[in-house]
């Protein structure tokens, strides 16, 4: 067959480790890490609420650092170690204490903000295992939730922190 179309854009090959698994993908230079996760890798646990870094629904960690994946380009993830909500529970399905406490405290309603909040909260507790209520509130101020009024989220995070400290 004769090719009539000229290719204008080539994709880049990127190698990463996501939730402990070696994963490679192809992406074009304009795609964000969020687009790659959701559209190329079908890892739809990470959510998009704004695409502009204002809502935190797309929170993931890259090499242990909390980021909005909508503000990171896919190509920037070369060689990086990425963690998403899909990797939070243990290999046998044991929930992370934060996940368990979110369920127990009714810290989610519609649940669209939940993956981002869980990732952000885990990152918060990694840096500060014994936060005050105010520290949790300010630590999670980049994650919007329209349903819960944050009450149960803050309770769940404080409770999970206490449990994780005593573990």
């Amino acid at each position: 067959m004769k090719r009539t179309m000229k290719r204008t854009m080539k994709k880049t090959h990127v190698s990463t480790v996501i939730n402990g698994d070696e994963i490679d993908f192809l992406c074009d230079p304009s795609q964000t890490l969020l687009d790659v996760l959701r559209d190329e890798l079908q890892m739809t646990g990470t959510k998009e609420g704004c695409g502009t870094g204002d809502c935190g629904a797309c929170s993931v960690t890259v090499d242990g650092v909390l980021v909005c994946s909508c503000l990171v380009l896919g190509v920037e993830a070369e060689g990086a170690e990425i963690q998403t909500v899909e990797g939070m529970a243990g290999p046998d399905g044991d929930l992370h204490p934060l996940q368990r406490k979110f369920v127990e405290h009714v810290a989610l309603q519609c649940g669209i903000c939940t993956p981002g909040l869980l990732i952000a909260a885990r990152s918060l507790l990694a840096n500060n295992p014994d936060p005050s209520e105010q520290e949790v509130r300010f630590g999670l101020a980049g994650n919007l939730c329209r349903c819960t009024g944050y009450h149960n989220i803050i309770k769940a995070v404080l409770d999970a922190a206490a449990e994780m400290r005593s573990a």
Binding site: R38, G45, V85, Q99, F102, V103, G111, P115
Partner: peptide, 21 residues
């Protein structure tokens, strides 16, 4: 003790409209 939708939501498995392909 449990909410049937919550587990799916905290694990990222709940499927919202943009998650369908």
């Amino acid at each position: 003790a449990d909410r049937s939708d919550a587990l799916e939501k905290v694990t990222g498995r709940a499927r919202f409209a943009a998650d369908y392909n």
